[in-house]
């Protein structure tokens, strides 16, 4: 809402914001309390919608003043609600790993949006690998603080896995940023992203025929 000053946001959201063209149409999947969309409306004058499954966050997003559609991403609702190329950007932060079929959702996102921005935790980070190799146990870290039995993250992947999926689907990686849990980027992460990066931000689009 216009009367509110800019709210402070996470470095991850700042990075996403840098990738958004002003005045574009945006869909934010798993928009939570609407913080990112509110920020983009204020800083980039975007318009659009959020989608959220959680009832409390649904209420918070309405309080924040965004248009929010209460919806389960696993219900395959996107093609029902939106025509092809309805959005300049379809954003999904930290939700790829919780949906039933990330591959199908990726298709839907790129059907209704010209570009997609996706962020997710890297299961190939050295601390994950170390916990599995040295302790012989499923990793628990700051970015993935759950036990194996109660985690909502049912489809974890590494950056390499994600890029393989994109390649097989004819999806082009337009931009990639790799950060740690404090959302900082180091030289090491740039050289060995799949080993040293904790969170990845990808901007992808369909390859031109």
């Amino acid at each position: 809402m216009s009367q509110k000053s800019l709210t402070p946001i996470s470095p991850e959201f700042t990075l996403i914001s840098d990738w958004i063209t002003p005045n574009s149409r945006v869909l934010d999947l798993g928009c939570g309390d609407g913080k990112l969309l509110t920020h983009l409306m204020q800083s980039k004058q975007v318009s659009g919608y959020g989608m959220e499954i959680d009832a409390q966050k649904n209420i918070a997003a309405i309080q924040a003043g965004i248009n929010v559609i209460h919806s389960n991403l696993d219900n395959h609702d996107l093609p029902h609600y939106f025509d092809a190329d309805s959005f300049d950007f379809v954003i999904m932060t930290q939700a790829l790993q919780v949906v039933k079929r990330p591959d199908e959702l990726l298709d839907d996102m790129l059907a209704i949006g010209k570009q997609s921005i996706i962020t997710f935790p890297n299961f190939g980070h050295w601390r994950m690998r170390a916990q599995l190799v040295l302790k012989g146990r499923m990793p628990e870290t700051e970015t993935l603080p759950y036990h194996w039995y109660d985690t909502p993250n049912i489809h974890l992947c590494t950056f390499n896995d994600f890029e393989d999926l994109c390649e097989s689907k004819g999806i082009e990686v337009v931009e990639r940023a790799v950060v740690n849990s404090e959302h900082r980027s180091t030289l090491g992460m740039r050289l060995l992203p799949n080993l040293l990066g904790e969170i990845a931000l990808y901007k992808v689009q369909k390859k031109r025929a």
Binding site: Y49, A55, I66, I69, Y81
Partner: peptide
């Protein structure tokens, strides 16, 4: 209600939707 929401989205209207359990 999805039909109504869909028609409003088609028009880029300002709409919020809640499906209450």
């Amino acid at each position: 209600s999805h039909e109504i929401v869909k028609a409003l989205l088609d028009n880029d209207a300002d709409v919020s939707y809640a499906e209450v359990t």
